[in-house]
Design a protein around this nucleic acid. Sequence first.
DNA 1: GTGGTCTAGACCACT
DNA 2: GTGGTCTAGACCACT
Lengths: 95, 95, 95, 95
Amino acid sequence: MLTINWKPDKESSIPLYKQIIDYSKDRMRNGEWTIGSKLPTQRELAKIFEVNRSTIVEALDELKAEGLIEGKSGKGTSIVNNTWSLLASISPPNW
Amino acid sequence: MLTINWKPDKESSIPLYKQIIDYSKDRMRNGEWTIGSKLPTQRELAKIFEVNRSTIVEALDELKAEGLIEGKSGKGTSIVNNTWSLLASISPPNW
Amino acid sequence: MLTINWKPDKESSIPLYKQIIDYSKDRMRNGEWTIGSKLPTQRELAKIFEVNRSTIVEALDELKAEGLIEGKSGKGTSIVNNTWSLLASISPPNW
Amino acid sequence: MLTINWKPDKESSIPLYKQIIDYSKDRMRNGEWTIGSKLPTQRELAKIFEVNRSTIVEALDELKAEGLIEGKSGKGTSIVNNTWSLLASISPPNW
DNA sequence: GTGGTCTAGACCACT
DNA sequence: GTGGTCTAGACCACT
């Protein structure tokens, strides 16, 4: 299980769910969140980040849509990392 | 009639109507917009600032509420400046 | 113009827009809000009730759907009361 | 789950939420959306129609008020069709 | 000026 | 997970 000691900035003009997405991607890029590792449950994440669980759902939805994580009902959410997607969001390749 | 060559920044995270309020207060503080001078019509302001007229109405509403301007139906809007109000919004007096 | 000195209860489990609908219907039933009288503007109601204008719009939408009020762009909202509709919503007649 | 391949026309002068209401009623009239079938989630509909979820909610609110659909927290929205209501909105009977 | 429409974002209740 | 509620902000049409 991943450990997290960070909170989104509620004063920031960047939406909470986007801050969470960015934070998660950073962790994956850094290799801190490796493929196969499991995320805390949505309820736990909500407590850790001190946001509503719906905000967590919104962030995870996007990460799922980008193929970075995978959630199976009742089995938690895991990193299925996709290096290409992450690289692409930094700077597009010039092939 | 006052001349204006400034536009709010549509990319800013500061709401358009707030940028317009701030800009107006600055002009009054600077003494560029003196008591008694008339503002362009709402429609003209909308064109000048490149925003919707409703956004102008919203900004003028607040300036009116603060007693800085006064609008009479069919007679345009004029500065009735209130130095105290403006000072107050910089730093509160310590009486 | 109707005078209002009431605010919805933000702590209540009843949604704000529903409290506003109920309050409005009560005023009409009591005959305090008579046919033809004009409501304050949506923006004023928002200030009076200390809610967002969207919440006002949501409440007025329902009253409109029930044929109790009528809103005209640029001309405000008026009571067009329908006694039958109001009675029906208290208790169904037993004919 | 119902399949949808249609989008409201953003250029139309008919409000988006009204287009969505009309489209939905047509589907029900045609018998394509049968009683008991489930609609996609509000968030999915928003993506499909390329509008904000609030616009979806506005449309569903009306369909709900007309008794055509029913939404249950955490359980999605289903068609509870009311043929009379639909017929009535095409042309009133001449009894 | 004002009602109407729409977007973006967030939280809650209930499952 | 999903419907329901609410806020803040902006634009448009019509007067």
